[in-house]
Computed example of a mutant assay.
Amino acid sequence: METLLSVVIDTRIWAVEFAEAFPGTQVIGTDLSPIQPDFIPPNCQFIVDNAEHDWVFDRKFDYIHSRMLTLGMHDWPRFFRQCWEHLEPGGWLETHETQFPPKRADGEQARQSAFITWGEHVYESAATAGIDVRASEKFTSQLEWIGFVNVEKVDVQWPIKAWAKGSKNKLMGRLLYQNTLEAIPAVGTALFTRRLGWTKEQVDADVVECVKDVEEERNHFYYSM
């Protein structure tokens, strides 16, 4: 029997790899921009859509997967309601989201740093746009209120840089490190100048301090699933 999958996602790799791993599954990926890969499996398709708008699918799904919508989602309860309405009975919803500000590794004394302060500025500036970058803390209660059952929340720590033990953690650390170096200037320029009134010079100076902090410290993002 064909399984239907809706993917609300900000990266195309996951949808393509899922379709390749499960060729009997029909995968539908949605994104705000038409930047999907040219070559995709025959059981995978992409549409340009906004997950915050009214969903127009004429079918229900067995599984809905979303990830990394933290800085773009204004109304999580409405999103979850649409997921509920578009799931088959017994269907599953899985969502992966980050939180800001980043938190230090377990066992280390909490202290202020340029990187953590940057995350607090992200929280402050996003809030002025009606976005809660700590929204995942409320997911369990929101999902249960709508009617979801067997809700499980898993907090995962990802190391920044390859200092953590184990080959898997080292690989994730290297990848998150590169992602962090790209995110610090991109997020700062987009949010701090528009929402906090910072000048480009202020953002540039903050980027230098944040990158230095990331280089020198051992940090984790809390990644909630």
Results as ranks from 00 to 15, higher is better:
127 A>V: 05
55 W>H: 09
140 T>Q: 09
143 L>V: 07
107 G>H: 00
64 I>K: 00
85 E>V: 00
117 T>N: 13
45 Q>W: 00
68 M>F: 14
131 I>Q: 10
77 P>R: 00
135 A>K: 12
99 Q>C: 04
103 K>C: 14
118 W>T: 11
98 T>D: 01
76 W>L: 00
123 Y>L: 14
119 G>M: 12
81 R>Y: 08
87 L>F: 08
52 E>A: 15
136 S>D: 08
92 W>E: 06
81 R>L: 07
69 L>N: 12
107 G>L: 00
136 S>V: 08
135 A>R: 06
69 L>P: 01
50 N>H: 09
50 N>D: 15
101 P>W: 11
110 A>S: 10
78 R>L: 11
143 L>Y: 06
63 Y>V: 15
55 W>R: 13
78 R>A: 12
139 F>S: 10
110 A>N: 05
79 F>S: 07
49 D>Q: 06
127 A>G: 13
122 V>W: 10
110 A>L: 14
124 E>R: 15
87 L>T: 04
47 I>E: 15
78 R>P: 01
94 E>W: 03
120 E>V: 10
85 E>Q: 03
91 G>R: 06
94 E>N: 06
119 G>N: 14
49 D>A: 04
85 E>L: 02
125 S>T: 15
61 F>M: 04
131 I>C: 08
45 Q>K: 02
143 L>C: 06
131 I>Y: 04
